[in-house]
Simulated assay, not measured.
Amino acid sequence: MYGLEFVGDEDRFAALEAGVAAAGVERVAPGLAVADAVDPDRLAGLAYTRRALDLLGRTDADPRSARAIVEAASIEREGTVAVRARVLRDSAAVSTSEVERECGSALVARGFAVDLDDPDHTLRVLFADGACLVGWVVAESVRDFSARRPTDRPFFQPGSMAPMDARAYANLAGAGPGARVLDPMCGTGGVLIEAGLVGSDVVGNDAQAKMAHGARENLAHYLGGSGVDRVVIRGDATDLALRTDAVDGVVFDAPYGRQSKIARHSLDDLVGDALAEAARVAPRGVLVADRSWHEAAVDAGWRVTDSFERRVHRSLVRHVHVLERA
């Protein structure tokens, strides 16, 4: 059994994304989940899971209970250890320093040497609400999203999606080694960058020459030398220059507002036709928008397997639709 520590406060969304790297994910407390199996390599590319633990046990939110787990557990590890305790979302009245002392003492009593600077193994004791997970860290996600802030890219336009969210949406669409991911309205290429960084080949499309050129520049900057294939096309999202089933997943951020800036299309027609074209080229997808497109997605040949409303700021709520071809 494994424990998962989530990032942020949208546990249902985090759990769904965690499902690309873990099997049998079950939420047990705010910010905490358990899983039957974990792929450490895939977990490293998750946005909303911080780390995975090989669980020694699960108990109530009491330092003495956590120590009892360490004392009773079968431990087959060798080398130095460190204990790190954390309370998630201020949801438990626990002294983390006391927990680290108690569990560290239990490990020393079992013959382990403590190394707080560079341990061979780290024991995490995580508290949330009335629950506690105790386990060895076996995988951690790479938290380097701030290095790719939209304003720091070679090509920037206002309204670009945050890298952490782009990564999560790419993961939900099936990004990963051996996959090919399409963004048919790619803008500055943020989703494609994140999909490429977890090993996907990427295909971008945008109706505006300026955006297509800028996305190519950004992809070259972040993915150059990575070994992933990348291509960006200037074209119409409702009539893609791609064969049927050309990609494994599609992600796009629909235009916001009531009208499309693309000639010949009302916004309803643009998004509806783009959804139908996406269903032609991919078996799964994620649509992000400023309102629900559930009915349009179904009409376009998709099944909406999950949906979320995610607040970006006071005036913007993103509607996320997780899609599978019907």
Rank of each mutant, 00 (worst) to 15 (best):
D62C: 00
L219C: 12
V312Y: 06
Y222I: 06
W293R: 06
S105W: 12
P154M: 12
L219D: 04
A66F: 01
H121T: 04
D54G: 03
W302F: 08
G189K: 08
C132W: 09
S292A: 14
T122K: 09
L192N: 12
A297K: 11
A72N: 14
A179S: 13
D183W: 01
R258W: 03
R234Q: 15
R325N: 10
S307E: 15
V312W: 04
G225D: 01
S292F: 15
G257S: 04
S307D: 15
A139F: 07
R58M: 10
L223I: 01
D239W: 07
A85K: 02
A15H: 12
V228T: 01
R51L: 10
V271T: 10
V38T: 05
D236A: 05
S260I: 03
D245P: 06
A300T: 00
A254H: 03
R149N: 13
L4G: 03
Q208F: 15
D11Q: 08
D273Y: 12
E78D: 14
D299F: 04
S315H: 15
A166K: 13
A15S: 15
A162M: 14
N171D: 05
A93E: 14
V281E: 11
D253C: 01
A220V: 09
P255M: 01
G272E: 13
A179K: 09
E309P: 07
A179V: 04
A263C: 02
A73C: 03
S105T: 15
D299G: 08
V181S: 05
V138I: 09
G189L: 11
A92L: 01
L197Q: 14
M211H: 08
D11G: 15
D239Y: 10
A147C: 09
A279S: 15
A18Y: 02
P150C: 11
F127K: 00
A109I: 08
D248P: 10
D62S: 06
M185K: 09
W293Q: 05
A175N: 05
D165F: 14
G8S: 09
L56Y: 02
G204H: 02
D62I: 00
S141W: 04
D290L: 05
A254L: 11
V20L: 12
T244M: 09
V250W: 12
A246G: 02
A106M: 06
R42C: 02
L270G: 10
L56N: 00
G257N: 03
A212P: 00
W302Y: 03
R77Y: 06
L16D: 13
E17G: 03
G204Y: 00
D206G: 02
I75E: 02
L240R: 07
T80E: 08
D206E: 07
G159Q: 08
V137F: 08
A72M: 04
D273T: 12
L116V: 14
A289K: 14
A22W: 00
R84D: 11
I193F: 13
V298I: 13
D90T: 07
V231R: 14
A278L: 10
A170S: 02
A29P: 00
R311N: 13
S141E: 01
F127T: 01
Q208V: 12
G8V: 02
L287S: 07
E194M: 12
A254C: 09
G285R: 10
E100K: 04
Q208C: 07
A47G: 12
S91H: 04
D229Y: 03
V94M: 05
V7N: 11
V83L: 10
L43G: 10
E78V: 11
R51T: 05
A21I: 07
L32F: 00
L55F: 01
A170W: 03
